[in-house]
Design a protein around this nucleic acid. Sequence first.
DNA 1: AACGCGCCCTGTCCGC
DNA 2: TGCGGACAGGGCGCGT
Length: 273
Amino acid sequence: MPELPEVETIVRGLKKPLAGASFARTRVLKPDVLRVSPRRFREALKGRRVHRVSRRAKNILLELDDERRLVVNLGMTGRLLLSPDPGTPPHTTHPAVSFDLADGRTLVYDDVRRFGVLEVLDPGSWAARDRRLGPEPLLEDFTTQRLWKDLRRSRSPVRSWLLDQRRIAGVGNIYAIEALYRAGIRPSRRARSISKKEADRLHREIRTVLREAIEHRGTTLRNYRDVDGAPGGNAPRLLAYGREGEPCSRCGEVIKRVVFANRSAFYCRRCQS
DNA sequence: AACGCGCCCTGTCCGC
DNA sequence: TGCGGACAGGGCGCGT
């Protein structure tokens, strides 16, 4: 569910409130969101202080005072919810893991479908994971040149290419569809067929779409909430995603929906080639 | 090696 | 009103 802008909104919301906070007690209600035993997970966090909160791709990183990190991937429906104030737990629907902080606040990982994963990784394990992720699209090293060169090496449909986290980090189905719509490129186009000029446009639109979504605190279709439980405001701004049968905002042609790789793609057959 | 597919799980919505 | 099927923002493991 949550893509880069939603994860970034959560990270920004946790930065100040969690800086310096420490884990007193952890309760695991749904062990299937972990990859180790609940006991081992609890022990890894016990007494640890949060040094810094950051994001890499769609992962939330709580950097701990022992050099390890609590890595949270929200899957489709994961949420991180924080107490409004000490003594008041956040409002949850499907709590999976609950973290009591030393100051009386509670951080809860809530997840209806439980596709999310929580792990505590040492520096080496995290570095190995990090290396497998592609460039951050909002950072300097993601250049038009790099995008174009990387696209040329793949025969996948460009929409599938954009969803592959090893190639570009943090883009999911919504923003892939939106960027392709705005760049005038059909989702089914083979990555290697994208011209230099198209790659330039795609590069710009990926960044614009992500930046604007962050400004609007993410897209809420159903489940996404920020750390205060509030929905994002970006959904009404989507031009193609979820708009099957509606007129194209540019030319009035009907927006089409096609399915490949088990996921919906939306596009305008007149504006996108 | 690169790629596409099925699957993990629960909730919601739509058509009959 | 009830029921079955399709579908949902992600990512992994498998077979080709």
